[in-house]
């Protein structure tokens, strides 16, 4: 049976891990490669590394980090942040990433999705969307949530799927950092509209929140950062809990 995936997200700045609270303040949470290796041992199904300084600083360090992660880890990982054109995708896949996540660049230039899908296959192309619930609508944002994109969530992700996205990573800015649970209604709406996997992001605070994202949000995977980075939830224990709740998860090969 296909397992629901648990995906720690590592926001990387200068090869260090940081996590923003509502995208503004950052706290240090350790070395990015070591933290990824630890999550892998604990039972993480995949990892996401986001280069949060990509648009402002050089990308060489991040590419070097991707190489180190690929050499060290035996689970898949996605990289994102600052991917604007096909040459960025080529560089990151060449360094050993399994998938790339495109966000603002895809909203600005939706054809980028087709280009990635055509060159590397749809399975490589994760389209990440940051959206906020405002005036009874889910609206997309650019540049890590700083700039309104002027597009509604559902039409955009539908278009992204049509253009060749392999997965949708949906971050609710309304729920992110608040730790009151994922945006389950919006997630369920995406799941019923799309024919590709949906990764839930933003709002995890307790184990129950993960269960609800799978049970009510119909998500295929759930992503979280700070609850893992600060030891509030242990991935192995989370999976034991989810299994007890009849959510299919991968449990073997883990460090207890």
């Amino acid at each position: 049976m296909l397992a629901k995936r648990i995906i720690p997200c590592l926001d990387v700045k200068d090869a260090m891990t940081v996590k923003g609270v509502n995208f503004v303040n950052f706290r240090d949470a350790g070395d990015a490669v070591e933290l990824g290796a630890r999550y892998s041992r604990e039972g993480a199904d995949e990892l996401v590394y986001l280069d949060i300084t990509a648009s402002h600083e050089g990308r060489k360090t991040f590419t070097e980090l991707v190489t180190k992660v690929a050499a060290r880890l035996n689970i898949p990982f996605t990289v994102g942040g600052g991917i604007n054109e096909l040459s960025d995708v080529d560089r990151l896949l060449g360094a050993g990433a399994d998938k790339v996540s495109v966000n603002s660049a895809a909203l600005r230039n939706p054809r980028l999705i087709e280009e990635i899908a055509t060159h590397y296959g749809t399975q490589v192309c994760v389209v990440a969307v940051d959206a906020r619930y405002e005036n009874n609508r889910w609206m997309c944002y650019l540049n890590g949530g700083r700039l309104p994109a002027g597009r509604e969530l559902l039409p955009w992700v539908t278009e992204a799927e049509d253009r060749g996205a392999g997965e949708i990573l949906f971050t609710s800015m309304t729920h992110d950092g608040v730790k009151q649970g994922y945006a389950n209604e919006a997630l369920a709406a995406l799941a019923s509209r799309l024919h590709i996997s949906v990764i839930a992001s933003g709002g995890a605070g307790t184990k129950e929140h993960f269960r609800d994202a799978f049970l009510y949000g119909k998500a295929d995977a759930a992503l979280a950062a700070s609850v893992f980075h600060f030891g509030e939830i242990h991935i192995g224990q989370l999976k034991t809990y989810l299994a007890d709740q009849d959510i299919p998860v991968r449990q073997e090969g883990q460090e207890v």
Partner: peptide, 16 residues
């Protein structure tokens, strides 16, 4: 060929 709405393609993830 998906049969139900929850059958997503590509098949991505850990399976037994």
């Amino acid at each position: 060929a998906p049969c139900r709405q929850e059958d997503k393609v590509p098949h991505i993830g850990w399976n037994t």
